[in-house]
Design a protein around this nucleic acid. Structure first.
Length: 539
RNA sequence: GCGUCCGUAGCUCAACUGGAUAGAGCAACGGACUUCGGAUCCGUAGGUUGUAGGUUCGAGUCCUACCGGACGCACCA
């Protein structure tokens, strides 16, 4: 719709001008600032706008008016009707498009050492909605979860379960300084006793001092890996509870280390590595990183960064057009070194886009919750979902930008009233469904109705509902799904206002108004589904 | 100390990427129920967009310096 308007302007200006939304409704549907063109033509903006308006008259526009440097446009009923029919015919396929770009979207990738907490949920919901929106408008998106199933944390998981099991069995336990706490470890330990048998846990763990820290000596990799798999199952179940579309790929860190030598030789060939103090370093400081980074330790073990380099090598080898990673904001310092590595591998680091999802500060009854994975004092996704439901949680997260700090009280989410914005939008949808029930009509019945002589209210509501395609492009291109959410809240508001002012059933314009409501209902339903929320037909 | 992000109504957040008079919700106050579902609507009040400069037709948005906050600054993942 916007494109058609832009094309009409192009005929007279030579290029597509910015098509803006006027600040005030009375000004019309679209506003085009022409300051730039007036300047190019060395004319007074007011004069220029006036002259341009004369040339722009056509059947798509009901009126074209100049106002202080802007050209304001009102669309014709006929033009709007054409798009209304399109919505009612296509329904959930409306605004679908084709694009040639292929994108790999990696998100969540939480360590498989514990269940998902509320911070992970934000990234999960952010990524999931982005994927849904992007796919709808035609991007070829593959979703991926990188499983950190190697390294010290997995050993630590094994140690924690082992010692917890000994505690359950009444054996003496000496805890190291670092281990995972929390109820889920005890649950795992109980299951592990069933799985491995009591004898498995007989031997006490030797504790050694290392850098002034107590560490456990542990060689039972089978227990660690078993616990990791259990945690992955829980994570999958948590994601499912959040209504996250299942990931296309699960990539194991452990499985990639076998390519390290190959990747290392590429880096060496490109002059990215050097040896110092018995370690191998990456010259990441040549590309905006603060300093060079160790990739192989003195004991010849590759670091985590090495694993991540292999992972990104593996990604880029797949030859997609674009790679998007969603990371927790606390990892922002990591961006430079990964991009440097990509450059050293001979790939284009600009194809990698890293989006940050900020911390969530959760309150309950006004008291702050401290979230820490190690301490076992974190809020579990499943608890919140159980408490307020996935829809409300998704809605709250998706109303805000992902990269700003967010603070909210769980108790507020629990309120089943208008302070919960998901109720506001759902209520609008349910109302429309209810009106159609009362009128004994279906959306499809409205296709035969021709929209004409529309009042300002009718026109405004319809026009607003027809903005969805543009909102989707905007939300995806900016990687800001909250734009869709806020649009839906506004659309619901426009509908509620309209409803209170205008009788539908029994009015002279019943059919025309039903047709407009059909469009609104379809758009609300589609918009919510792209946020991963099921629109309610009854509340 | 260095780096990244952020600072908008009492609170939680928007603002279509530089556009017209900075908007919603919550909280406060006042209205609309013989209702197509009042889980709604209408109204009142609330702001020097952290501070000070700069760039231009035009700045919450861009540049600089301060002030304040979050997070990083591992050979942990």
């Amino acid at each position: 719709m916007k494109k058609r308007v832009a094309d009409i302007f192009k005929e007279h200006l030579g290029e597509n001008p910015p098509i803006n939304k006027p600040k005030q409704k009375e000004f019309g549907h679209y506003a085009v600032p022409i300051f730039k063109y007036a300047k190019e033509n060395r004319q007074n903006p007011v004069e220029f706008a006036k002259n341009l308006c004369e040339k722009l008259k056509c059947e798509e526009f009901e009126s074209v008016e100049p106002l202080s440097g802007f050209v304001n446009i009102k669309l014709s009923d006929k033009f709007l009707d054409e798009f209304a029919n399109r919505v009612i015919t296509q329904k959930e396929n409306f605004a679908k498009d084709e694009k040639n770009e292929s994108i790999l979207l990696e998100y969540v990738s939480a360590n498989p050492t514990g269940p998902l907490h509320i911070g992970h949920a934000r990234g999960a919901i952010f990524g999931d909605s982005l994927a849904r929106i992007g796919r709808h408008i035609g991007y070829k998106i593959t979703t991926e979860y990188y499983v950190n199933d190697a390294g010290r944390q997995i050993i630590l998981l094994g140690v924690s379960v082992y010692l917890a099991a000994r505690e359950i069995l009444g054996l003496d336990v000496e805890w190291p300084d670092e281990y995972y706490r929390g109820e889920y470890i005890k649950d795992l330990a109980r299951e592990a006793i069933e799985e491995f048998g009591e004898d498995y846990f007989k031997k006490p763990l030797e504790i050694v001092k290392k850098d002034d820290k107590k560490e456990a000596v542990f060689d039972k990799e089978d227990l660690s890996l078993w616990a990791k798999d259990k945690m992955l199952e829980e994570i999958k179940s948590d994601l499912n509870d959040l209504n996250v579309v299942p990931f296309d790929n699960w990539v194991s860190e452990r499985s990639l280390y076998k390519y390290w030598d190959e990747v290392k030789s590429i880096l060496e060939k490109n002059g990215a590595l050097y040896e110092k103090d018995g370690k191998i370093w990456l010259k990441s400081s040549e590309f905006k990183d603060e300093k060079d980074r160790v990739v192989v330790r003195e004991n010849s073990m590759p670091t985590y960064l090495a694993g991540d380099i292999v992972y990104h090598w593996d990604k880029f080898k797949r030859g997609l057009d674009r790679y998007i990673n969603i990371w927790g904001a606390d990892h922002h310092g990591y961006i430079a070194r990964v991009k440097a590595a990509i450059k050293f591998l001979g790939f284009d680091p600009d194809k990698l886009e890293i989006l940050l999802s900020q911390m969530v500060k959760l309150l309950k009854g006004g008291e702050p919750y401290k979230m820490s994975k190690r301490a076992g004092n974190f809020i579990l996704v499943r608890d919140v979902v159980k408490d307020v439901g996935a829809d409300a949680l998704r809605f709250v997260f998706l109303t805000k930008k992902a990269d700003t700090h967010l603070e909210f009280d769980v108790d507020d989410l629990n309120k089943k009233d208008s302070s919960n914005p998901s109720y506001y939008v759902n209520y609008a949808h349910a109302r429309i469904c209810s009106i159609f029930d009362n009128a004994d009509k279906k959306y499809d019945d409205m296709l035969g109705v021709e929209l004409k002589n529309l009042s300002e209210d009718e026109k405004d509501l319809l026009f607003f509902a027809l903005q969805l395609p543009y909102v989707l492009e905007d939300a995806f291109n900016n990687r800001e799904p909250h734009r869709l959410t806020n649009y839906l809240i506004d659309l619901a508001g426009e509908f509620h206002k309209f409803y209170n002012k205008n009788k539908v059933i029994g009015s002279e314009k019943e059919d025309i108004r039903l047709k407009i409501l059909a469009v609104v209902g379809i758009i609300l339903n589609l918009g919510l589904s792209l946020l991963g929320i099921k629109a309610k037909e009854r509340m």
